[in-house]
Design a protein around this nucleic acid. Structure first.
Lengths: 192, 192, 192, 192
DNA sequence: GAGTAATCGAGACGGTACGTCCCGTCTTGTT
DNA sequence: AACAAGACGGGACGTACCGTCTCGATTACTC
């Protein structure tokens, strides 16, 4: 594999590819997405795809990352319960949007058989958000809103796990009701 | 779709197919599994596969279901904490077994783009086990070990969600330590 | 291969098979004819086909043989030219009938890659008719209507060859005009 | 059907395919020839076959056309009888060659159930040669070697028909003896 | 008339080839 | 040099038939 020179890269092609990928994923399923289809629908040579991305998952990941960039924040009003409530409701909104859900589920599915995707997904989307959450929880713990012996990463998993559980296992739709109930129990568990 | 006559079904072929599917999935990845490969390695015509199963996921599901049949139980010693502990550790063991993990992750991935698989997975594997868990929790709630206003399905999600969260998002390996910590927090949340 | 007992053969099945074969060949092409299709449409098990015939060509051959049985005659009015004219026009009629043409062409095509069919075709249909023609020509030669040194099998080929030439090479439709012109030239060639 | 760009066509692949087709047809029968087999033995993807040819018959036709290109001539010594004799003997030689016979018979067989093949066969092989023959006969007719009222296309059929008759109906092997006898009779019929 | 053995209908089986889709690489001008 | 275009060798797809095989249920001879 030659290493292409990013300076000469065509921004037009990049835009067309990312847009086409998202668009196709919306009309079809993630499984129905193909490199060939993206190229055709973006008016781009297949070589251009393979030059800059190793797989359709990588393309989609970049497209999503771009769109999700502006959601990288965690509220901090000083009231932990309120902030978690806000943030979990935002997550429900994201995850409920059929478009975004398609990408999410497609990518997580792809990550099961491709460690590269898995790592990229973690790095680009998951870990930054988890970190923000942990930062907020740490602050709360210092403020005495959380018992000092509580393991914060576990709290993150208790808050987010149930949402992904429903999302990926399809046991039930993800709802605001769910996160409210969950949040109440978790708060009960971690409060002094 | 013709509707084949199950009475004339060859048990020999069925066995060979299920075994070959599991075996191939063990040596290769779920994504590398193909109908063609299963047929070849089972010494079976492709038509025989398509006659009885709509997809490789369906084959794998049946194979797993069969193997998992004997794990359909939930301990009941009268001590809720101990029983949950036992059951969660069993889950960790299952999910940590590389073979079983491959199937699980492959199937859950497939379920993301195929509602048929999703439903079959729920029906065959998930729901029966969730129900057993809820039954045990109900008994505990009646026995006063859980506050009466606690929503039990939410408790199930709090217990299992974090495990699937790690498993599918690959944030961290699933461990007994994790479930212990999780369980302690959950018990704190639900105890009177 | 067991040798089935013809005494116990079901005449009903035989009839249904031959009729179905002809019928299918009429609605579809010879190439589109299948053992599976014949069995299904005759309401008969595939085994019954294979028990009594080695191939679809053999079935068709028997069906045609049956229908052609009553055309096994050669006119003999004492006037050779008139008799050949009559017979060639009959051939044109047969060969022009779309149904019969389909069989003929299908079988001749099949004969190209299956010596069994070729031999059966010769024995059942071609040779008997050629013989009748030669008999008639012999009589004419004795009567002095054909020069004594003329080779009669060659005459048969001169009369029939052009018809099959058009039929199988599709250079032009087989017509009565054609056979008239041909006949005139052949008569010129063989007359004293 | 997409319309591929002939400019980008790989001559290497084309050659390998035509050669493989001829070779396979030589070792096996026409009926045993498969697109899959040709692809495999030519070291070529099946798509490449289907991109440029609609069927195995079309491939074979092109291969034969190529090889037969140099035989497109008709002798003209001024002596019609001698020239026809020369040409018919050449035909016998061609048709007796087991390799060429296989193609010929296979293609003619295929033409019976595929009008596309039929037309291509006519256009590429039959009609050009028939025309040359008619040209030669026309010259002879002008030279007074053939009676003016004789229909020349009929003469062609009288000369070639018997050869194809034997070839396709397998009544007898095609021989030089046959064409000599035939030719004598035809000459008798058409001479002034 | 009952027993029994072969044929029957049906169709599942292990296979082969079909024609299509997409993969990832490559080649050929164009910008 | 990156681009649009798309041909290439390859692998898997899901389907259609092949010819063989089992399975009761007739069915027609034998005793």
């Amino acid at each position: 594999m030659v290493t292409p020179n990013p300076d000469r890269r065509s921004e037009r092609a990049r835009r067309a590819i990312l847009d086409a990928a998202l668009e196709l994923c919306r009309t079809d399923t993630y499984a129905g997405l193909t490199m060939e289809g993206i190229a055709k629908s973006a008016g781009v040579g297949k070589q251009t795809l393979y030059r800059w991305w190793p797989s359709k998952a990588a393309i989609l990941l970049e497209a999503i990352e771009e769109r999700a960039a502006n959601t990288l924040e965690f509220p901090d009003t000083g009231d932990l319960a309120a902030d978690l409530h806000t943030q979990l409701h935002a997550l429900v909104r994201t995850v409920t949007d059929p478009l975004f859900a398609a990408y999410t589920k497609g990518l997580i599915a792809a990550a099961q058989s491709d460690p590269t995707i898995s790592e990229a997904l973690l790095k680009a989307l998951i870990r930054p958000r988890v970190q923000l959450c942990i930062d907020r929880l740490t602050k709360a713990q210092h403020a005495g809103e959380i018992r000092p012996e509580v393991d914060l990463p576990t709290v993150v998993e208790l808050l987010y796990g149930p949402v992904y559980y429903r999302l990926l296992l399809h046991t039930a739709p993800v709802t605001t009701t769910q996160v409210n109930t969950t949040l109440n129990l978790v708060l009960t568990a971690i409060r002094p």
